[in-house]
């Protein structure tokens, strides 16, 4: 009799758990609404010669040229859209024109903005490699940085900078004057408007700010007034990592596509995920490995004008090119 009761109890617990898992799966694991992208080509290998990389970490595109942060080599390399090497500039160091671990990049009005992780500054270059401005210095005060991971530029020239170890995103005038910040300096958090080691930012054409809140495993969105309006990544976007669609395991890079879609470099899941601007999951592509169409820790993304995606395959020391699959 007691055995029968235990059996019934176990069976009921099993059914309840199965229902909870099924509901959780339906609610928290969205299905793809688009086909994955198609792999086109890859270029690069480990080294310090032209066309080789030693820790590529950032990427940006302008005028049919691909700019890549070759971080440990302390330089920017420039390629055409098929991966043919064109030129390089920068050398390891702290001086003007030198680079201390360049990370995520952005291009605005024919100038390249480089976040320098070691030098705690943003350096602005002409596209032919002339250093033009240095913005910021080490620290945790307004306008100071503790390992900036990336940068984007607003239409009025304001800079938005994820300040990695200060757990904040700063908005600065083009001359570096502090405007405002999101997040609490030096404090991590899982609620809306605070961050855990943010690494990259992107603005869409409507002025919405997207932040890769890297170690909170989510993307946060702020409206033009700076108010947090959305966040996604796992259940309730509270930092739970996972391998499922729409979840992240450290989101290191973010880019806005030609249609306003959001692309995220899902670092430890070795894939790129694509979302609508409202966070609806659309598709993903990649997978762990070193073969064609695989990634060994994808870290950054850039979108060309025709929708082609360029992704930085960090540990394989290469760049991958993908195009949308016509369904």
């Amino acid at each position: 009799m007691r055995l029968q009761t235990a059996f019934k109890l176990g069976r009921n617990i099993f059914f309840v758990l199965a229902i909870l898992i099924a509901v959780g799966w339906l609610v928290f694991v969205p299905s793809a609404k688009e086909p994955p992208y198609t792999f086109v080509t890859a270029w690069g290998e480990k080294g310090n010669a032209p066309g080789q990389f030693n820790d590529p970490t950032g990427i940006a595109i302008a005028n049919d040229e691909v700019f890549v942060s070759d971080s440990r080599n302390g330089r920017i390399q420039v390629f055409d859209l098929d991966g043919h090497f064109k030129r390089q500039f920068g050398a390891p160091g702290k001086g003007e024109g030198q680079l201390g671990r360049p990370m995520n990049l952005t291009i605005h009005k024919d100038e390249l903005y480089v976040a320098e992780y070691f030098n705690d500054r943003i350096q602005v270059f002409s596209l032919d490699g002339q250093s033009r401005h240095l913005i910021g210095k080490s620290g945790s005060g307004p306008g100071e940085f503790n390992a900036p991971g990336g940068v984007t530029v607003a239409p009025n020239g304001d800079l938005l900078v994820p300040d990695f170890y200060n757990h904040r995103v700063q908005r600065l005038k083009a001359d570096g004057t502090f405007v405002r910040q999101w997040g609490v300096t030096g404090e991590k958090g899982h609620t809306a408007g605070v961050f855990i080691y943010p690494t990259d930012v992107a603005l869409d054409r409507n002025g919405m700010l997207y932040v890769s809140d890297s170690y909170a495993n989510r993307i946060q969105v702020f409206d033009i007034a700076g108010k947090p309006v959305n966040k996604w990544g796992g259940p309730f976007a509270i930092g739970i990592p996972g391998p499922f669609s729409g979840w992240f395991r450290v989101v290191t890079g973010i880019a806005v596509g030609t249609q306003g879609d959001i692309f995220a470099a899902d670092f430890y899941n070795h894939r790129v995920q694509k979302f609508r601007g409202d966070g609806t999951f659309l598709t993903s592509f990649g997978g762990k490995g070193s073969g064609p169409g695989q990634f060994d820790h994808v870290i950054a993304i850039a979108v060309a004008g025709d929708g082609t995606i360029f992704a930085v395959d960090f540990a394989n020391d290469r760049i991958e090119k993908w195009r949308p699959t016509r369904s």
Partner: peptide, 12 residues
């Protein structure tokens, strides 16, 4: 340590 943001942070 497999993330460069972590590794570079330690180096720094």
């Amino acid at each position: 340590l497999s993330c460069p943001f972590c590794a570079y942070g330690i180096e720094k």
